[in-house]
Computed example of a mutant assay.
Amino acid sequence: MAQLYSGIDADKTVVLKSDQKHIAIRLGSSIAEVDGRKVDMGREPVRYLSHLYVPIRFLATGLDGKVAARDAKTGKVTVTGLNKYKDTFSRGTMGYSYMIRAAKGDLEITNAYTGQQNSIPLGMKDINVNTHDLGLNFKRTPKNLLIVSIEYTNRKTKAYDLYTLVFKNQGLIRKSIAHGLTEKHETLKPDGTIQLIDESQCAYD
């Protein structure tokens, strides 16, 4: 399902949007707008019981997909190639939220109680949720250091980029970045040692 936010404007225009996609559909008109372009849907949208119905072929095309099959008996329509357009990836721990916006690629840290924010550049770019998975994981060392691991994995090849950040009292003390890894890397060793990996491996306690 596409990660788009929806809302209706004062002029009865329904908008589906994210940082990467903008679809505007006006009630009473067959002409829609997709990323600034006028598109003829073929018919006007229908609003019924708080739901809005538009031609499936228009919506599929607007999300970079296509109608692959249609079953005349059941009415089932199969759509392939849809773009998710997911904007953010986030997780939280110990009163802080950690978020990565697809458009920026930086790690944004927010204190849930005070609202104070801090941004850490990661150098990530061209985040594509249709071909890759992005995961955030947290671990604490015996000395109460927080390890934030970010894995950006190619679904097809299974190769991944690993971004590792080490925090002490919410202050960043170490960061490492490794690209194109093919084997699983355990950052926190059983003896409490932190094993960072980038262009060269180094251990930190």
Rank of each mutant, 00 (worst) to 15 (best):
L172T: 00
T110S: 15
K143F: 01
K156A: 14
D64R: 11
I150K: 01
A112L: 14
L52E: 02
Y113K: 13
T182E: 12
Y152K: 05
D133S: 11
M99P: 01
D64Q: 13
K76V: 15
D126V: 14
D106I: 07
G95H: 06
I150C: 05
A69W: 11
Y96C: 02
P142G: 00
H132W: 04
G180V: 09
M124G: 03
L165M: 12
Y163I: 07
V79W: 12
G123T: 01
T182K: 13
R70Y: 15
I109D: 00
R57C: 03
L165H: 04
T182V: 14
L145G: 00
K175F: 10
L63T: 01
R174T: 02
N169D: 15
E108M: 11
I173G: 07
A102E: 07
T80Y: 11
A103E: 11
K125V: 03
D71S: 14
A60S: 11
Y48I: 01
Q117N: 10
S97Y: 10
R47Y: 02
S50R: 00
Q116G: 08
D161K: 04
A72L: 14
L107D: 03
T153L: 15
E108W: 08
I173H: 06
F58V: 02
G95E: 08
S97Q: 13
S176T: 06
R174W: 09
S97P: 12
T88E: 12
V46R: 04
S176C: 08
R47P: 00
K175S: 12
M124V: 04
L162G: 04
G92Q: 10
Y152C: 03
L122T: 03
K86A: 08
T78A: 14
V79C: 15
Y152T: 08
T157S: 13
R91F: 05
A159C: 07
G92I: 12
